[in-house]
Every structure is written in C-alpha cells, then in structure tokens.
Design a protein around this nucleic acid. Structure first.
Length: 167
DNA sequence: TTCATGATTGAC
DNA sequence: TCAATCATGAAA
C-alpha cells in the first residue's frame, strides 16, 4: 500500500528530471501517457519508481517514496536483507529493492497489470504535506509542499514531514 | 571520452 | 555527518 509520494511537476519544476524540457533516453517514459512507470537509477546504487501522471508530452509524475508491505514479506526480507517490516519499503530505493524493481521495468504500463501495476485503495484525508526530500538545490521549488505521507504510518521515510505525527 | 553530480541509504 | 558507487548527461 502506497503511503508516501512526491510530485514532480513537468518542465517548470527545477527539481524534476524534465526541468527545462530536457528529454533524454533516461527520462523518455516521463513523456508518455499517464499510468506509465518511470524507473531511474540514482547514486549508482538504487532505483526509484514513479507513476507518470500527465498526458503524453506533459511530463509530470509521482515518485513513490514508501509503502506499507502487505504481501510477500518473506521475499522482501530476502531482497532487502533486513527483518523489521518498517525497514522493508520505507524509502524510494528500499521499496524498489524489496520488489525487485529496476530499469527493466521502466516504461511498463502500470494500469494493464502485466508485470508491475498499481491498484486503487481506500485512501483518505489523513495525509501530511511537506517539502520534498533531497532537492535543496532546486531553489524556491525545494520549499514547495509536494510531499504527501499518510499520517502516523511507521513506513513513511525520514525525515518525517511536518504534521506526520498523529494528534 | 572525460567529468561532475545526484528525486539515497546505511554506518558511525 | 559522511562515504559508497556509477548511470546519466553535459561539456569537450
């Protein structure tokens, strides 16, 4: 269950890979239709998964930052090498490792349900909003409230956004 | 072909 | 707080 996301807003967003209209082999899937997966490698060590959310040639996407593991916990533990449930998918790189997601899944249709897909869930209004993580270089865009996390969920990555703690 | 850097993580 | 580690993209 997706419990944390960040929005990356097209060509104007200085923190986005598509800033300024850049179109490269890496970010090509960002320019595809909504429902497409955008998977990229980062820091030479990890992968991050995005759900493309715009119309074709309008490159906006949601970075999936954390999940609450529901099924396949044993396989996730094997992939991650950790035991605690909240260490399995509590970060964008972690959840890709847990699921075995890499660039081979870049561009797949997340609606069709072939290999990797997203299903609708309960959702709800109990969401904390805050600035995105690791984008300090993005000027005023670094402060924009584009990070969304389920309040009180222990799988939300650190640092927790303001208002995450219930109460 | 070279060089700088990052939508991170984990250890100290 | 800091190093690991390399795909990616821009410059040369």
């Amino acid at each position: 269950m997706i419990v944390e996301t960040e929005a990356y807003l097209g060509v104007e967003d200085r923190a986005a890979h598509t800033f300024g209209g850049r179109r490269t082999p890496r970010n090509e899937s960002m320019y595809r239709d909504g429902g497409t997966a955008y998977v990229y490698a980062i820091y030479g060590l990890h992968f991050c998964l995005n759900v493309v959310a715009g119309a074709p040639d309008h490159p906006v996407a949601a970075l999936v930052r954390a999940l609450r593991p529901v099924e396949g916990l044993e396989l996730m533990r094997a992939h991650r090498g950790v035991q605690r449930d909240t260490d399995l998918c509590s970060g964008p790189g972690k959840l890709c490792a847990a699921f075995g997601i890499d660039r081979a899944l870049d561009g797949v249709d997340l609606v069709a349900g072939d290999s990797l897909w997203v299903e609708t869930g309960p959702g709800g209004p109990d969401v904390a909003v805050g600035p995105r993580v690791g984008v300090d270089y993005a000027g005023e865009w670094a402060a924009r409230p584009l990070r969304f996390a389920v309040r009180g969920d222990p799988n939300v990555s650190r640092p927790r956004p303001p208002g995450w703690a219930p109460g």
